[in-house]
Design a protein around this nucleic acid. Sequence first.
DNA 1: GTACAGATTGAG
DNA 2: TCAATCTGTACT
Length: 211
Amino acid sequence: MKIIKKRLGRDFYLQPTLKAAKELLGKYIVHRLGGKRLVGKIVETEAYIGPQDKASHAYGGKVTKRNRAEYLIGGHIYIYLVYGMYWQLNISTGPEGRPECVLIRALEPISGYKNPKFKTLNPKQIQNSKFKIQNFPNGPGKLCRWLKLDKSFYGEDLTKSKRIWLEDRGEKISKSKIVASKRIGIDYAGKYWADKKWRYYIKDNPCVSKT
DNA sequence: GTACAGATTGAG
DNA sequence: TCAATCTGTACT
């Protein structure tokens, strides 16, 4: 059977942000680098819905040099540095001018991992294997390191870029496999916003970030 | 010009 | 539990 590989188009990113955050689970991110392709399956996401969301960088409708990519029409990359060390990959959603985005928090590595044995392992084997979890893209900072993403991807259009895009490979994550939970690391936003269950992940997937 | 905190991570 | 590490942002 032929595997379907369809690049996600603008319509996908124009869905309501919470829906897009859930739909992104099970989609594949592809970064073409040199002659290789780094490919990962998205297994964890978080939604940020400014300007009302106190945890969002666009809270209150704030526009800065850093966050302006959040306002782009759905399908653009908003990437920024936290703690002076780690890049965070976000994808803008919704129409132009509305600061909503989805943070990609974890991937299941599909190809590109330096150990070629890796791609033949299924998730259960990954969990049981002795491979160092250290280099896994199982966290927002580690994911960017694994995919080799940095500021040069700021504002990149995922529907048009020749080096990075998202694919639908015909995989459908059933509703019962999607878990909604509180977002991570945003307690400063206050209980109301910190308690919103806008983090989604694939149940039992070993590549979901540790909390 | 200067102070300051952060959508994390890994070591101790 | 805590330091690393640095840029954007806000304020003097």
